[in-house]
């Protein structure tokens, strides 16, 4: 998560612009399909171009594409449940796969990967704090942005503490990994995991109270000050925002739903 996945300097768009583009793109992707497959083709091409402009590492993006796959795998049921002309029957289970179901699944899968990829491209092109600056620039409540910033800061700390505690507990059992091999025999492991989580909570709460004190010690009084350099919109930003806003309209006019 930390750092950018860039291979060379990319287009210096304001993070707010990136947010607007991602959201409009996803709306457009949802509208595309049906009778306008060209819309999905066009959006795919646009995504490649934007990824090139933002100079992201496609290898890193593609490595993460497994994330929506389990949901898509579960969604394969729609090829059986969508009414329509039978394409073939799955032998052994006698389940008819319909033509309409097949096309629907293909369309959904395409949209899911487009939407996932645009978010990955956009949000991996900037550092996390810049992404949050974009949120703040879009007038998301400052308290929520502040909470997200603190959470991001302490993610690595607490995940690290959790993993170290798990490692320590595992070492004391003599096993390579703590897992349920046979539930009846290993039910006691729930207590181990519960203690691990409970301990992590106590440490997190103590840490939270200390961080609160550290913030107070440096003058924090609950006001969330805007971060400097919110930045003006450049011509490139306005160009990108205009394109983003037009995308769903183009899809709709072209026969999307």
């Amino acid at each position: 998560m930390r750092g950018t996945a860039r291979v060379r300097p990319g287009l210096p768009l304001h993070p707010r612009t990136l947010w607007i583009f991602a959201l409009c793109y996803i709306v457009a992707a949802n509208l595309a399909g049906g009778s306008s497959w060209w819309g999905l083709v066009g959006l795919s091409f646009l995504l490649v171009v934007v990824g090139w402009m933002l100079s992201i590492s496609w290898r890193k993006v593609l490595r993460g594409m497994w994330i929506p796959t389990p949901f898509l795998a579960a969604g394969v049921a729609m090829v059986f449940t969508t009414p329509g002309d039978v394409w073939f029957v799955v032998p052994g289970v006698d389940l008819p796969v319909t033509v309409q179901g097949g096309w629907k699944y293909l369309e959904i899968a395409w949209k899911v990967y487009l939407c996932w990829t645009v978010a990955a491209v956009v949000f991996q092109s900037r550092r996390p704090e810049e992404i949050l600056q974009g949120l703040a620039a879009l007038r998301v409540p400052a308290a929520l942005v502040g909470i997200l910033a603190v959470m991001l800061r302490y993610l690595e700390v607490l995940v690290g503490e959790g993993r170290r505690t798990l490692r320590a507990k595992t070492a004391r059992t003599g096993r390579a990994r703590l897992g349920f091999r046979r539930l009846s025999r290993d039910a006691w492991l729930f207590r181990v995991y519960g203690a691990l989580v409970g301990n992590l909570f106590l440490r997190a709460l103590a840490r939270a109270q200390r961080v609160h004190l550290a913030m107070l010690a440096r003058g924090y009084d609950g006001r969330l000050l805007p971060s400097p350099g919110e930045g003006r919109m450049t011509e490139q930003d306005w160009g990108m925002v205009s394109l983003a806003v037009l995308l769903p309209l183009i899809i709709l006019l072209g026969g999307g739903r």
């Binding site: 997200l148 800061r153 909570f201």
Partner: peptide
């Protein structure tokens, strides 16, 4: 003024608790 640090760090706690995968 405790809201941001407390909720932020405890959000990280929930995330860390979710990160503890246990084989079933």
């Amino acid at each position: 003024e405790a809201a941001v640090p407390l909720v932020g760090v405890l959000g990280a706690f929930i995330f860390a608790a979710q990160a503890v995968n246990f084989p079933i």
